[in-house]
Computed example of a mutant assay.
Amino acid sequence: MMSEKLLNSMMRTILSAAAAAVLFVSAGSAAAWGLWDDFKTANVEKARVVDYSDLRRITTSEGQSYALFFALVANDRTTFAGLLEWTEKNLSGGDLTKTLPSWLWGQTGGGWGVIDTNNAADSDMWIAWCLLEAGRLWNEPAYTEKGRAMMALLKKEVRDVRNLGRVILPGRVGFEDKDGSVKLNPSYYPLFILKRFALEDAWWNSVYDGSLAMLVRSSPSGFAPEWAKFAPDGRYVVPDGTDYHEGSYNAIRTYLWAGMMSPEDPARPALVRQFAPMVEATRALNFPPEKTDVVTGDAGEPGPDYFGACVLPLLGDGRTAGLIRTVLTREGVRRDRYYGNVLMLYGLGFDEGRWAFDPDGRLVVRIEEARK
């Protein structure tokens, strides 16, 4: 009879080969994804993602970056190319390799155009990552080169904070004081993106380390804040102001990115432990709280249903996770709820096993043929 040790060894080999096979074939036909099709119908207009809850019918670099990710997962090359072209032309002055996208575009008094030229680092990171992975999975070197060029631009926005490490400023303007203090947004730093960057340039490993330290230090009570301030010596400080004391609509994404990390990423267990109070609060309320106090650890009333999508990857199986899945699946996409829609696509898509991230931040896409 085969020994348990040998059997386990064989199973690990088989699973590793299967994972490699998925990585290899993930440029093929991805499983059909009805929720993505619904989102395109509701929120994508001529290759731009529209937030209809704003009277200016705005488009953000965030929305474009998220849609690029969903198109990549769905193997929707036509939509991916259209989104990229629109973003480059309208948010980057025609060249992503030279100018990071402006974060806000929409209807102005003089017509349509850029409303705020500042960039949003999280969106830039997602776009660069999508380009690197599209280049790899679809064998499109032009995408890879654009992704690398965006990484070079992002490198200029990195600051080395003493006793904390290297972190990316949320944008070019408004996040750095003259004394060296920095204002950061914990929801801006999916660590798997930085892992993927490090495959192109090992220098980014130090940004991964600094970002991990920032995530842990900024949530001493187990709840992530909307914004976090760090003094020049790396101390986490909590100034007066709701943004620094409260975690809500920005911070909720922090749990989503942590939950989607590869189980083999050594940082994931640390973040799971750190954010355990949010998981406990979610189970007590059935949905995540809308607001949390990052100083006292107090949690408020349940937030909108789509907040549940962000905690779903940390919940695992159980009654609360089952309830969230049921409610979100029943609700579906709503045209006037852009932000809720994208969070729902992330949470449910990952929960359904449509994609995963390997330990180096590469995308593993579920292929329908591989499941037959």
Rank of each mutant, 00 (worst) to 15 (best):
F80P: 03
L132Y: 04
F69N: 10
G109T: 11
I127D: 06
A121S: 15
G82Q: 14
E85L: 14
G106E: 07
N119T: 13
V167S: 08
N90V: 01
K156Q: 14
W103F: 09
V50L: 06
D95Q: 09
Q107F: 00
K155M: 06
V114A: 08
G113K: 13
V50C: 04
V114K: 08
L91N: 09
G110V: 04
L153R: 15
R56K: 15
T117F: 05
G106K: 08
A121I: 13
G94E: 05
L137Q: 11
G171C: 14
D95R: 07
T108Y: 01
I58P: 01
V50D: 02
G94Q: 10
K155V: 01
T87S: 14
W126L: 13
G109P: 08
Y52A: 13
A134F: 09
N139L: 14
D51T: 04
G111E: 10
F70S: 09
W112A: 06
G110P: 00
E62V: 03
W138V: 06
T99S: 12
E157T: 10
R166D: 03
G171I: 14
Q64S: 11
R136A: 10
Y143D: 12
L55P: 02
A149M: 06
G93M: 11
A120G: 09
P101C: 12
S123M: 03
Q64L: 04
G109L: 10
E62W: 02
L132E: 04
K146L: 02
F80R: 02
Y143V: 06
R136T: 05
L169Q: 13
L131E: 04
K156D: 12
K89F: 00
G113M: 11
E133L: 07
G82Y: 04
A149S: 15
F80L: 15
A134N: 12
M151I: 04
G135W: 09
T79N: 12
G111H: 10
G110Q: 12
G94F: 10
F70L: 11
L131D: 05
W103S: 05
T78H: 07
E85P: 00
N163I: 08
G94D: 03
W86I: 07
L131G: 05
I58A: 13
C130V: 06
G109I: 03
L68S: 07
T78C: 00
Q107W: 00
G82V: 05
K155G: 12
C130N: 15
G109E: 14
A152P: 00
N163L: 08
F80Y: 13
R77I: 00
L132Q: 03
G111I: 10
S92W: 03
N90Y: 06
D160A: 12
C130H: 04
Y66R: 07
L55G: 00
E88Q: 15
V50F: 02
Y143F: 15
W103C: 05
T87Q: 10
D116W: 06
R77V: 00
C130W: 03
S92I: 08
L154R: 04
I168C: 04
E85R: 15
W138K: 11
D116K: 07
M151S: 09
M125E: 15
V158Q: 13
D124M: 06
L169W: 07
E62H: 05
Y66W: 09
R56G: 02
D76M: 07
S53Y: 11
L91R: 08
C130E: 08
L100F: 07
T99F: 02
R162C: 00
G171K: 12
N163W: 06
R166G: 01
L83M: 08
D116T: 06
A74V: 03
